[in-house]
Amino acid sequence: MTPTTQQALPPTTARQRRRTMVALLVALFLAGAAISYVGIQYLPPATDTSGLSQAVTRPELLVQVDLPHEEFAIPPGPYREQFQVHCTICHSPRLAFTQPLLPEKKWQEVVQKMVTVYGALPTPEEAREIVHYLTVVHGQTPP
C-alpha cells in the first residue's frame, strides 16, 4: 500500500482501515504470546535427536541414556515361537535363561504367575506349550 492510494481514499475509510490494522496487530501479538506461553509451560523442550550422543546433553537439566541392545539367541525347541510371542513382550528372553534349570512343575508356576499376576496373554493351550518349551530347553531332567 502506498501513501498515494491512502490519500486517494476518503478520511473516514482510512481511519477505519488504521483501526482494523491496529486491532489485527494486537490480535497477532496476543496469539503469539499465548503460543509462546503454552510452549514454555507445557511442551517438552527440543532435544538432541541425532541419537549418537547418549551422554548428558545439559547435565543439570536433561539427563538421558540409550540402553544397549543385544539380540538374545533364543534356543531352538518345540513351541519356541509361543515363548517368543508371549514372554518377550514384557521382558528380555535373557531373564528366562538366567533362571536355574527348573522342573516342569516350577515352570508351570512361573508361567501361571505371568498370566494371573502380570496379565500375559497366552491361551491355556499356548501356556502349556510354553511350559513344555521351557522344560525341554531349560528344565531339569526328571530323576
Binding site: Q54, V65, D66, L67, P68, H69, E70, F72, H91, S92, R94, L95, T98
Partner: peptide
C-alpha cells in the same frame, strides 16, 4: 562386552530388559 550399560563398568547382566 556387547551389553555395556551407560555410565557403568562391565557388570554381570541378570537381565537386560529391564536392566
Amino acid at each position: 562386552a556387547p551389553l555395556r550399560f551407560p555410565g557403568k563398568v562391565p557388570m554381570r547382566v541378570i537381565n537386560d530388559r529391564p536392566p
